[in-house]
Amino acid sequence: MSYEAIRLDIDTSSHVATITLNRPDKLNSFTRAMHRELSDALDQVEKSGVRALVLTGAGRGFCAGQDLADLDFTPGATADLGEPIEAHFNPLIRRLQALPLPVIAAVNGTAAGAGANVALACDLVLAARSASFIQAFVKIGLVPDSGGTWFLPQRVGMARALGLAITGDKLSAEKAESWGMIWQVLDDAELSAAAAKLAAQLAQQPTRAIAAIKRAMRAGNAQSLDRQLDLERDLQRELGASHDYTEGVQAFVEKRAPRFEGR
């Protein structure tokens, strides 16, 4: 499948894939066609066997959320805003969360509406110093979607989450970092290289263990301590039979760097 609204780069030497949202004239806002291309690109990423993914945007913005021009605003028509959420945004958020490899968002500019929450759905968020996050939904009479009402209270607490959602105010990258909403802020010129370097480092780590960490951390938000302890036991049992566990222990004993293979 050829892409117009995104770019996909798969580097087999570093085992890193990069997906770039590529509608810079529209601040990389989502259309149905862009969703279809992104879904196919994620298929290709999973099939390729890469061990880390970077998601970023072209131009001066990361993503401005839904392209309203892609919706039907015919006078007198009633728009079903739940349809694009059910068909596209919710599957995307679930998929980013469930991918069995580390996913890094490199937020190069404005991340607004669903675009902000797509970034938060990634495992680690790096942001350019000039970047910002905006829960813009209230400005047009809507509620944060694409996981916004779930991610925000967990990341920044209820008071700050409500403040961001109710006011729709812009949050700077530096404040997002200080609030614990994102992982790291970098100078604009350093963002791309830093994201690539981090992805390459993570691609050399035990990928199955990273996938298990993602699963366990997210499960912990929705279940009791007893169930979480059982999950940790079960995951540890599975990982104990992996190649990378054996390699990690052997490398420790031999006082050398481990050579993980993601299996």
Rank of each mutant, 00 (worst) to 15 (best):
Y245S: 07
N108E: 05
A64K: 03
I104P: 01
T110S: 14
A5W: 01
G65R: 03
L27F: 15
A189Y: 11
Q201E: 14
V125I: 11
A211N: 06
A257V: 12
N28I: 03
A219S: 15
D188T: 11
T110L: 12
R32H: 03
E83H: 10
D25T: 13
G141Q: 12
L27I: 14
A251I: 05
R95Q: 07
A161M: 03
C63M: 07
R227E: 14
L42A: 14
M34V: 09
R237Q: 15
D244C: 04
A33Y: 12
A196G: 06
E86D: 13
R218L: 02
A17R: 00
V185N: 03
A64E: 11
M158C: 04
I134G: 06
A199K: 03
P258A: 10
L202P: 03
E254A: 13
A127W: 00
V249I: 13
S39W: 04
E177D: 09
M217L: 15
G220Y: 11
S242Y: 02
I166C: 13
A119E: 05
P258K: 10
R227D: 14
A111L: 07
A116L: 01
N221A: 13
L8S: 10
L27E: 11
I10T: 01
F252Y: 15
V253K: 06
A5C: 12
I210T: 13
A77I: 06
K26H: 08
E247S: 05
Y245H: 11
E46V: 09
I182V: 04
A222G: 15
L8M: 07
V16G: 00
M217K: 15
A58K: 00
T167A: 10
V45G: 01
V45Q: 01
P75I: 03
L126R: 04
I134H: 11
L68E: 15
L171E: 13
E247Q: 02
L55C: 07
A131M: 07
V118P: 01
Q135I: 06
C63S: 09
P206Q: 09
W150H: 11
A203L: 13
S39N: 14
V54R: 04
Q223V: 15
S242W: 05
Q135N: 13
I6W: 00
A77Y: 11
R32Q: 02
Q228N: 14
A52V: 07
G147C: 05
Q250V: 11
R23D: 07
A17N: 10
